[in-house]
Each structure stands twice: as structure tokens, then as C-alpha cells.
Amino acid sequence: MNWTKKIHLKALTILSAGLLAVSSGGAAAPVHAAPAGAGDHGLLKQLQAKYLAAEETPLSFNDLAFLSADTGRAAGKGFMIGTSDGGSHFQKIYEGQWNFRQISFPDNVHGWALASVQEQNGAYLIGTSDGGKTWKRISESQVGFERIAFTDSKHGFGYVRAFTYYTEDGGRSWSQIKTPANTRGAEFTSRNNGWAVVVAPGEGYRVMKTTDGGSTWKLALKSAFAYPEYGQVYAKGDQVYALLYGGSGMSQTSYSLYASGNQGKSWTRVIAQETAGGGPAPGSGSALLKKGPASGRPGNMQLAGSSTAFLAGYSPAGEQVAVGRTVNAGKQWSNLPAIAGYEARISFPDSKAGWMAVKGADTSSLYATKDGGMTWTEKFAFKGKSQ
């Protein structure tokens, strides 16, 4: 097996040496329900008031991560909050300098984040070993990762559009996984098993698969028409989804979603959304639907169980957010009812229970669903001065 040699952060072109943020001990996670009547939304009024004193806009959620229907976290500029009772109570977990861009919590204790120092453009890789109460820099300088995904307290992946990196020590050192030339997005479910969206100039695009850690790649899906600007693969068990992004313009994005329920042996083109602002949808062939959820831009996907998957969608011009859903690995697809909002990000710990962070004109809210996205209940909201 041709694995690349482990190198420290400072040896990577996009990273520099840092301190390990994950301790060997396991501190108790801070996300616990407050006594009834003592942990309602008023607990966070001070945090909101302090922010609104200096800013016109409300605090805003950038990402969320839920381990179950009851337990999870949401974070944004300078804060992280959490619940362990399905949103009946929330508590402030963290307040400080970090502007959380993306968070990854494989358990209720260990977590990692891409975060900037307030308004800085670049992001650092930071980690916590007490559920998010305290954070330490793992990288001393800013990193180039666009996305991270940790599978347990030590193992994880860091992604840029063309390259993938792997860590076995909580992010202190990383090894590069070999991906095909002209990769425009990759996803690994384990060190050996991964997927890549590859552009073949003049020929179209390919979705490639590896089962030996990147030593060899095999063709899983191809098209000779309208190759994507970039792609994102989501995989879990037998389910695989290739989300291919076309052009963007006028608050619109063209995209295609392909689904496989047999690890890439066969595919269904689920969504092919072309727009006036974004042009044609990448790929070719007939699709089940010509529009995605909220008829807008695609957000993130979440895979649950053996055959259920969700895709967030949002339309800034239409002021709507929604999720699309399949319960049979993409053979059928439903765009579920929309709610008001400009942008959305989802976290589904199972096939029925899910959470959605929604940004509005002057609000940022957390919604929960118990019926797989058919209906949503607002559980928490930061509101601006006009609300």
C-alpha cells in the first residue's frame, strides 16, 4: 500500500507547525441541560446584547453539528452554544476571539474547527478536548483547508479542492493522499476508501473511486457534457452522491446531483438545475427533477441510515430555505416545504431528526425537525435591533 510519509504541519505548503489540541484525557463535555426554567433563551441575552451594542446585525450561526436529536452545537463569530435536551434549553459553551467557519465533533468531547480571529480572512485549525469550552491552536499559522472531517479523537481528513490530507494524531501532523490530476473535490470515508470529482479537459468530467488509499483510481461515473466548476462527494455505506456545481450569477447556481445506492456501480441523475445566472447544469442525461430544494443554491448534504439522504437548498432572491430528501438512495426524490430564510446549513443525526441553521434578513435561527424535514420548529433565534 503506497501511503505517503507522515509530515508535520510546517512541511506542508498550506500548513505550519503547531500544538496538539487534543489531550490524552477525556474531560466531561459541557453540553448539559440546565434545570427547567433556568436555561431558557434568556441565558444568552447578555451575549446578544453585547454584540448588538457594537454591530447592527445579529449574531449569526455559521455551522452546526448534532450527535443526536437532543445533543449538539452551533457556532459563529465569537461564540458557540449547545443543547442536550433537543433545544428546550441552550447554554453558552464558548465566548471569545474565534470566528468559527466550520466545526467537526466526532463525539461529545473532542472537536476541531476552522476558525479565524474575528474578521481576518484566513483560518486556523483549532481543537478542543472539553466539548468546546476551551480551544487551542493546532496550526500556528493560517491553513489552506477548505473543509475538515474527523472520524474519532485522532483520525481525520483535511480537504482543499485538489488535494486531501490525513491525520492520525488529532491534526498535529498530516500525510497527503494521492488524488487524480485535475481533481475538483474529494471525499474519504476511511483511509483506504475515497472518491474524487475529476475534470478531463476537453472531454468532460469523471467521478473516480479508490479502495487502496489513492494508489489506484477507477472510473465510477463520467460525462462528456458541461463539466463542473467543482464537485463534492458524500458517501456512507452503500450510498454515494456526487454534487456537481456549475456556474453562479444573479444569486443563482446551476448544479446536478447524482445518486448511487450500490457504491457507484450505477447512478441516477436526481437533480439537474440550470439557471439564467449560472448556465447549464453540469453533466448529461435525464434527471428526476429540474429544480432542487427551494429552487435555489445547493447547501450541504447529510446521509442517514442505509438509504436516506438530505440536501439543503436556499434561494436568497426568493427568501426561502428547504431540504430535499430521498429514502431509497436516490431512486425517488422529494423537495420538501420551504420556510423563510436566505441561507441554510443542515445536520441530520438520523433519518427523522434533524437541525437547520437559517440566516434571515435580520435573524439567525436554529430549527429542528422530527419528521425528516417536512415540518420545522424554531428552537432558538438571534435577532437584530429591529426585531
Rank of each mutant, 00 (worst) to 15 (best):
N2D: 02
H8Y: 07
L15A: 15
S16K: 15
A17R: 12
G18W: 08
V22Q: 14
S23Y: 06
S24G: 15
G25K: 12
A28N: 10
P30Y: 13
V31R: 08
A33V: 14
A33R: 15
P35Y: 10
G37K: 13
K45G: 01
A49D: 15
A53T: 05
E55N: 15
L59A: 08
D63R: 07
A65Y: 06
A75R: 01
S84D: 14
D85Q: 03
S88D: 00
G96R: 03
Q97I: 07
N99C: 00
Q102S: 02
Q102P: 00
S104M: 01
G111H: 06
A115F: 04
E119Q: 12
I126C: 11
G127A: 15
G131L: 12
K136Q: 12
I138C: 06
S141C: 09
D152L: 13
K154T: 14
H155C: 08
G158K: 10
Y159E: 07
G170R: 08
G170F: 05
G170Q: 05
S173K: 14
S173H: 12
T183C: 07
A186L: 04
E187Q: 11
T189H: 01
N193Q: 13
A196G: 04
G202L: 09
S215W: 02
T216G: 02
A220N: 10
A226Y: 05
G231A: 07
Q232S: 04
Y234N: 08
A242N: 02
L244W: 10
Y245H: 10
Y245R: 14
S248N: 03
S251N: 13
Q252F: 03
L257I: 13
S260I: 09
Q263S: 15
G264W: 10
G264R: 14
K265G: 06
I271Y: 03
I271G: 02
T275P: 00
S284V: 11
A287R: 09
L289D: 03
L289Q: 15
K291N: 09
S295M: 11
P298E: 08
T308C: 03
T308H: 04
G313P: 01
Y314K: 11
Y314D: 03
A317N: 08
G318L: 07
V321Y: 06
G324W: 09
G324E: 04
V327F: 01
V327A: 12
N328A: 05
A329E: 02
Q332F: 03
P337L: 13
P337N: 11
I339R: 09
Y342W: 11
I346W: 08
P349H: 08
K352C: 01
M356F: 02
V358N: 06
S364E: 01
S364V: 02
S365W: 01
L366A: 03
K370S: 09
M374G: 02
T375D: 08
T375A: 14
T375V: 07
K379G: 02
A381F: 02
A381L: 04
A381Q: 12
F382N: 10
